[in-house]
Every structure is written in C-alpha cells, then in structure tokens.
Amino acid sequence: MKSQNYLKTLLLFTSLIIISCSKDDGSTESLAGSIVGIVELYDDDQNNIDNSGMKITVEDYEPLISTLSDTDGSFVLKDVPFGDYTLLFEKEGFGDYKLYDVSLKDNNNDISIIGNIIKLGQVSNSEITNISAVINGNFIVLTVNRPSTEDLLVKRMRLFYGKANDVSNTNYTEFSPIIGTTGNPANLTFSIAFFRSLGYESGDTLWFRVYGDNFYSNSYEDLDTMETIFPNVNPNTVDAVSVVIP
C-alpha cells in the first residue's frame, strides 16, 4: 500500500513539475521526456528487502541512459527521446530482467508512467543436491533433495524436461510452473499420460533437470531470441536424471 500511495504521489508531483516548466515562449518543444516507475525487491521467502540500487537502463541506446532506484524503489529515466524501448533491470544478487514495449510519446506531458509496480526476486538460494526418478504404475515419482541446512520457509523449484541428457534451463522441450514444497526430500508425482500429451511415446527416454527458483521468478520471453528466460533459477544443481516411458 505504501508503494502504491508513493507511486500516486510521484506521478502527481512529476506532472506538476512538467506543467509548471512547460514553455510558453514559442520555442521548439522538447523531443524527449522521462520514464518513471517503481520496483519492489524480494527474497526467497517473499519478504520485501532493500529496494534501492536496482540499475535501470534503456537498452541498446547510445548515449547510455540509466538510473538507480531509491529506497522506495522509485526511478526516473530522464531525457529519453520519444519512442518505444526495452528497459533492462540489473542488481547484484538478482537475475537480469527485461521489460519490453515501454512507450514514450509526445502527449503534452513528456512522461511515460509504468503503472504497475515491478516486483523482482533475487536469484534463488535454494540448491538441488540430488534427484532420482522411478516409474510407479501410471506415474513418475521424482525425489528431490536439498541441503539439510536450508532454512527457507517454502522451497521452490522449477523442472525442465527434454529428450537428451543435456536438458537445462536453456535447453528443454517443456518446463513446469513454480513448484513449492516444505518437505525435504520432496516427492513429486507426475502422470505418464501428461508426458504422452507432450508428444513422448513408449520407449522414449524422458530427462528431468531441477533448479531452485524464486517465487518471483520473473521469467520472460526474449523477443530477440524468442526463448523463455529464467533469470532467478539457482545455477547450483545436479545432473539430469531419466526414465523410459513405458
């Protein structure tokens, strides 16, 4: 609620400044403006942490236009020429995130407001130490272990499926949504019929690889490569395991 109220205040304050500074002497109007917004930063347990220091950059634009979020998470990118842009978000401990199709137009206010608060998670602290997979009737049971010292309230993971042992978060045929568990090890059960619906047939080898992930995974489709990016998966995991579809 605090951030939403702050956003409203920021937008009103910025609008007043722009109106008060508008030119009335007949000089050439500006061909640039500002992009404003708010980021909120979260740890693995969905706790809001220090919102400051997130670097926001207008991607692929020269000269460089960037800024840092403040303690409330607010940011202002100034002197941005009118156009459509991609914003890149970077901070140590966080996966890089991109926000596409941010439009700044000459609408007499010279400002683009990102209306939704951008909620970004840290790279997950949840490591995977061992996985195994077995066939049990019409189901596949995947057992996932983590360090016994891991103190997260809910342990979250994401699974990637493929037909080769090099399956990973960048090389896969399908991936799961975020799965949250409290047990260690976690036993996950999947219907074989589900994988058949994905195109796997009897005799095919199905490979799994598992990564810890944040509740705020911030996955997005890279419009340049048309691949889904998973910025907050923990790269510390183990080799893939497999079963043969009966």
Rank of each mutant, 00 (worst) to 15 (best):
R156V: 03
A133H: 10
G115T: 14
S124A: 04
D166R: 01
A186G: 12
N138K: 15
T149P: 04
L120V: 15
P147H: 06
V154N: 05
L198S: 02
F190N: 01
L142Q: 10
S176L: 03
N138E: 15
R156L: 00
I128K: 14
L142W: 12
K155F: 05
A193I: 09
S176V: 02
I140Y: 06
V134W: 03
I117V: 14
N165F: 08
F190G: 01
K155G: 05
T182Q: 14
R196T: 05
F194L: 10
F139P: 12
L152P: 06
D151I: 09
S197Y: 00
D151R: 09
T149S: 15
V167I: 08
L159N: 03
S132G: 09
I140V: 12
N169I: 06
Y161K: 04
G180C: 02
V144C: 08
A133T: 10
I117C: 10
D166C: 03
P177G: 07
I117M: 08
N165I: 02
A164C: 08
G137T: 13
L153E: 06
N145G: 11
F160S: 07
N138F: 13
Q122I: 13
N145H: 12
S168G: 04
F139N: 15
Q122H: 10
G115P: 13
I178P: 13
L152W: 02
I135K: 11
T181C: 13
Y172F: 01
D151V: 08
N169W: 07
T170N: 01
S197N: 02
M157F: 09
M157I: 02
S124H: 02
N125S: 11
V144D: 05
F139W: 11
I117R: 07
E150Q: 05
K119L: 12
V123R: 10
K119Y: 11
N169L: 00
I135S: 11
I118F: 14
G162Q: 03
P147Y: 08
S191F: 13
A164M: 11
L198W: 02
F160T: 01
A193F: 08
L188H: 04
S191A: 15
S124I: 02
P177S: 09
S168L: 04
N165H: 10
L198K: 00
V134Q: 14
G180Y: 00
R196L: 06
T170G: 01
I179A: 04
Y172S: 02
P147S: 05
I178F: 08
L153D: 09
R158L: 03
G137W: 15
D166P: 01
S148Y: 12
S191N: 15
T170Y: 07
E150H: 08
G137P: 15
S126N: 14
F190D: 03
L198D: 04
T129D: 05
R146Q: 14
Y172V: 06
T173I: 10
I179V: 14
Y161F: 01
I131P: 11
N125E: 07
L120I: 15
Y161G: 01
K119P: 12
A193K: 13
K155I: 02
I117T: 10
M157Q: 07
T143V: 12
I140P: 14
S168N: 01
R146I: 11
N169T: 09
